[in-house]
């Protein structure tokens, strides 16, 4: 014969179990980070930061002058490093409110077109260090019009469009 004693205790037990599981679930999920780190939010911010910094560098101080970025590219021979770029870009991106600086690393390069065969050459402008395996970088770019011999063997300097590309990452 089926015994119907203790049905209420069973139901109460289930209710208590549910409440305990839910409480545990809430507590555990509340103390963990809601949005995981691998969600591109920091990438988006880093890319925007780099884009803003390049835009500042590509803006002339006054009408008729050339921008710092254009000057940097024009005075730097193709294939050589330019420390001015690193200093300016580093200052713009690593500044923080208060003391200390941020730890943003970058590799900057310039792409230009070879007029003879429409191939694209790229050379490094400046970098803080090399990108190590496993580090996650974002890319930000800026078009600049420069008056330069591109490629260096070109007979004369003329207005050219080059693309400044910067890989940025935080270590």
């Amino acid at each position: 014969m089926v015994n119907t004693d203790g049905q209420l205790y069973t139901i109460e037990g289930f209710a208590a179990g549910l409440i305990m599981i839910m409480t545990a679930y809430l507590v555990v999920s509340a103390t963990s980070v809601y949005t995981a780190g691998d969600t591109h939010i920091s990438d988006m911010q880093l890319e925007q930061l780099g884009s803003d910094a390049l835009k500042i560098m590509a803006t002339p101080a006054s009408t008729g002058e050339i921008s710092p970025l254009q000057k940097i590219i024009e005075v730097t021979p193709v294939g050589t490093d330019n420390a001015t770029f690193g200093k300016m870009f580093g200052n713009l991106t690593n500044s923080k409110t208060g003391f200390g600086t941020d730890h943003i690393q970058f590799i900057a390069s310039v792409s230009y077109r070879n007029k003879t065969d429409d191939s694209v050459s790229i050379y490094r402008l400046n970098s803080t260090r090399n990108l190590a395996g496993g580090e996650h970088a974002v890319r930000t770019t800026k078009w600049v019009i420069v008056n330069k011999k591109l490629p260096p063997s070109a007979p004369f300097a003329e207005d050219r469009a080059v693309l400044v590309e910067v890989l940025m990452w935080r270590d």
Partner: peptide, 22 residues
């Protein structure tokens, strides 16, 4: 840069580099 002297070269630069690098 609409008033540059050699807009044709700049135009090709932008077209080619956009395709290759972007």
């Amino acid at each position: 840069n609409t008033s540059r002297s050699n807009t044709t070269v700049v135009n090709s630069d932008i077209t080619v580099i956009s395709l290759h690098r972007k």
